[in-house]
């Protein structure tokens, strides 16, 4: 009969409409912003720089090795290496970034900087409500905006952060163990 197919289709629509009141399955949306989903642990948006302890400036893990600057595909990281060195968490003298800027209007959240960083210094944040009315300067994030504490890192990526802390703890212990027989000159490493 002509029209039968249409009626059958409407039956499906009715099933979905009334079903959406009963089944979560059929209604997957949430009422943002009143209702918010917890982001996945792996979620990523823009990078941030991790610092340890309270020193937003002094605790930065970044040693300005410039690897991420070089590997970032759209080249949106700019780093000015410091002239002097200061000790890092194992006590080795390292450079630090005098300036560290990410142009987030260009950053494409690819996470490659995180992967290539050998010092666990840069990680991905999950914050996404970042709109600004300043198209240029407002999207050029400097060190003060990028630096976030290790606690923040633990809050957004708990599993990964715990692994990182464990690895760094081991490194530190190994460095201390090596430093104990301090009578040896430095070349004996």
């Amino acid at each position: 009969m002509l029209g039968e197919g249409i009626v059958r289709g409407l039956a499906e629509t009715a099933r979905n409409f009334f079903g959406s009141f009963a089944e979560k399955e059929r209604l997957t949306t949430v009422q943002f912003p009143e209702e918010r989903r917890v982001p996945f642990e792996a979620a990523r948006n823009f990078p941030f720089l991790v610092y340890d302890g309270d020193g937003k400036e002094s605790g930065l893990r970044c040693v300005a090795c410039l690897i991420c600057e070089k590997e970032c595909p759209p080249r949106c990281i700019h780093i000015d290496k410091s002239k002097d060195k200061k000790p890092d968490f194992v006590g080795k003298a390292q450079f630090y970034p005098a300036a560290f800027t990410i142009d987030v209007s260009v950053c494409m959240s690819c996470q490659i900087c995180v992967e290539v960083c050998p010092f666990e210094a840069i990680k991905m944040d999950t914050a996404f409500e970042l709109s600004t009315d300043d198209r240029f300067a407002g999207l050029l994030w400097g060190k003060d905006r990028l630096a976030k504490s290790n606690e923040h890192y633990h809050a957004i990526h708990p599993t990964e952060a715990a692994e990182v802390d464990e690895r760094r703890g081991q490194e530190k212990a190994a460095a201390e163990a090596k430093a104990k027989p301090a009578a040896q000159p430095a070349e004996a490493r």
Partner: peptide, 20 residues
């Protein structure tokens, strides 16, 4: 759950005279 969705999705308009 995918087969149920596929059945419904197919039933929605596959037999519709207009689509044909």
């Amino acid at each position: 759950r995918a087969p149920r969705f596929l059945d419904e999705y197919e039933g929605l308009l596959r037999n519709s005279e207009i689509v044909m």
